[in-house]
Design a protein around this nucleic acid. Structure first.
Lengths: 128, 128
DNA sequence: TCTTATCACTTGCTAATTGCAAGTGACATA
DNA sequence: TATGTCACTTGCAATTAGCAAGTGATAAGA
């Protein structure tokens, strides 16, 4: 995980944020995790159809950036699940605003689900 | 500008939003416009150093998506400036949240400027 | 008038990233 | 032993990114 502003193309926080999550897929994975998904297969089954190699790559990047954590949830066979860190959970307000925006301006798009809009970052950490 | 949810990869508003602005540069241009910049050269001079061909491409996409409008501001020589539409101005809350998030989690990043955080979408439309 | 400059792009080209499809390894179950 | 599942990985073609240089319209200066 990058630790100094120097590693980024500028000192602007927005710019740094976009270097971490500025693509078409990363925030979709975070969205899924906000909705309680945690397994590789869960993410793969989302309606947008993320390609498997992209998913694996994004999970790695999100972990490197400290947004998610990979944890074993069984040993036989060894399986891992992905959970939001505090940093990742705190992206929720961003996603909520972005979801509202898109719903307002994309005719025909679904409204963000009530439970998604009602959630708070701290809800996403332990018991969900 | 896409007008039906069908044109997007899913009906999720977040997903549609990311198809429009999910890259490393688009929101940086919107940020600059929120700060009062409007000319091609202004965007080019931002510290992140966007390549010229990418800038031209993103301005085109942002216009196609109805986020910005291209307007002539002089005729000799013909010159254009780029202004936020209501749709674009309403991205401000998203940028504010994302700026706060990054400032909180990227050590050494600047805090979002006070005037940026104090602004409201309606401030960005006419007189700025 | 001729030259130089500026602004807002565009073009060419290489490198990196994306995305589809198929394959792999560890283990469970029949 | 045979088949299946899950979580990836690999190969490869196609798209996109990014650097550097070029272009066209016009202004300003010699």
């Amino acid at each position: 995980m990058k630790s100094l502003a120097q590693n980024y193309r500028s000192q602007c926080p927005l710019s740094a944020a976009l270097e971490m999550i500025g693509d078409k897929w990363s925030l979709l994975i975070v969205r899924d995790m906000c909705m309680g998904k945690s397994k590789y297969g869960d993410f793969q089954n989302s309606p947008e159809g993320i390609p498997s190699n992209i998913l694996a790559n994004r999970l790695r990047q999100l972990e490197e950036n400290g947004i998610i954590k990979k944890q074993p949830y069984q040993t036989n066979p060894p399986r891992y699940e992905y959970l939001l860190s505090a940093k990742g959970a705190d992206l929720l307000p961003v996603l909520q605003q972005l979801g509202l925006w898109a719903h307002r301006y994309v005719p025909g798009s679904m409204p963000p689900p009530d439970d998604f809009m009602a959630a708070k970052p701290e809800d996403l950490l332990a018991g969900k």
